[in-house]
């Protein structure tokens, strides 16, 4: 009998593929966002609203779901170059699924790639896809304590979009309680309040995207 100390990351293969994807994006000047959140939290609606307010030629999207290509079709109708990734039974996207689909998506002229993950507050947080940033959509219909219940997802988020805020008058959701919960699971909570339907907050969201992309690529220029 012998023992081997391995000390290896179990998801090393995924992480290697994610690094490969990341280099591919960065070399092309593409800021890639992993958009996560519960089913029905408004991820697709946010991207549709983004397309209405931004240069659509500069945006592309991959939309992950267990079944149907409905979200990719919605994004396509909104003017965003999109591809569906249907995962079958898998509850999350992984780097290999993204890598495979990239061969079918024309990224020429694209500055922002949105990877809309499978609607789920648990599994997608575990798999690196090669993104530059994680954004979590949390709708006001979901309850104030979601961040405390799903700390891993929020700990990995660079930005939380609190969506559907046009429903606030009907729900009485306590936004301060959400902020309090976020501060206990996110080291540096950044939040944008947003209504995709009414367009509220879209300017702040676009400003965050532009600033975050500039930070990454100006840093890369300095290093070069």
């Amino acid at each position: 009998m012998c023992k081997i100390d391995v000390q290896t990351r179990i998801l090393a293969r995924n992480d290697d593929t994610a690094s490969h994807n990341r280099i591919h994006f960065l070399e092309r000047g593409i800021f890639t966002v992993n958009v996560m959140g519960s089913p029905g939290s408004g991820k697709t609606a946010v991207l549709e609203a983004t397309a209405r307010a931004f240069d659509r030629r500069a945006i592309a999207a991959l939309a992950g779901d267990l079944a149907t290509d409905n979200d990719a079709a919605r994004l396509q109708r909104a003017g965003i170059r999109s591809r569906a990734i249907t995962t079958g039974q898998a509850c999350h996207l992984d780097a290999e699924l993204v890598h495979h689909e990239l061969h079918h998506l024309d990224l020429s002229g694209v500055d922002y790639l949105f990877i809309e993950n499978v609607g789920n507050l648990v599994c997608p947080a575990v798999y690196d896809l090669g993104q530059s940033a994680n954004v979590v959509a949390l709708s006001v219909t979901e309850g104030e304590d979601k961040p405390l219940k799903y700390p891993t997802m929020f700990a990995k988020a660079d930005l939380v979009l609190i969506t559907k805020i046009d429903l606030l008058p009907y729900l009485g959701t306590d936004l301060d309680a959400i902020q309090d919960a976020l501060a206990r699971v996110m080291p540096n909570p950044q939040v944008v309040l947003l209504s995709a339907r009414e367009g509220y907050g879209i300017d702040s969201w676009l400003a965050w995207l532009t600033k975050s992309r500039d930070e990454i690529f100006s840093a890369a220029e300095v290093m070069a």
């Binding site: 009998m1 012998c2 023992k3 000390q7 290896t8 990351r9 179990i10 998801l11």
Partner: peptide
Amino acid sequence: EIVLQRIELEV
């Protein structure tokens, strides 16, 4: 951590 730490085996 999601780490494979150690393996006990016989050859």
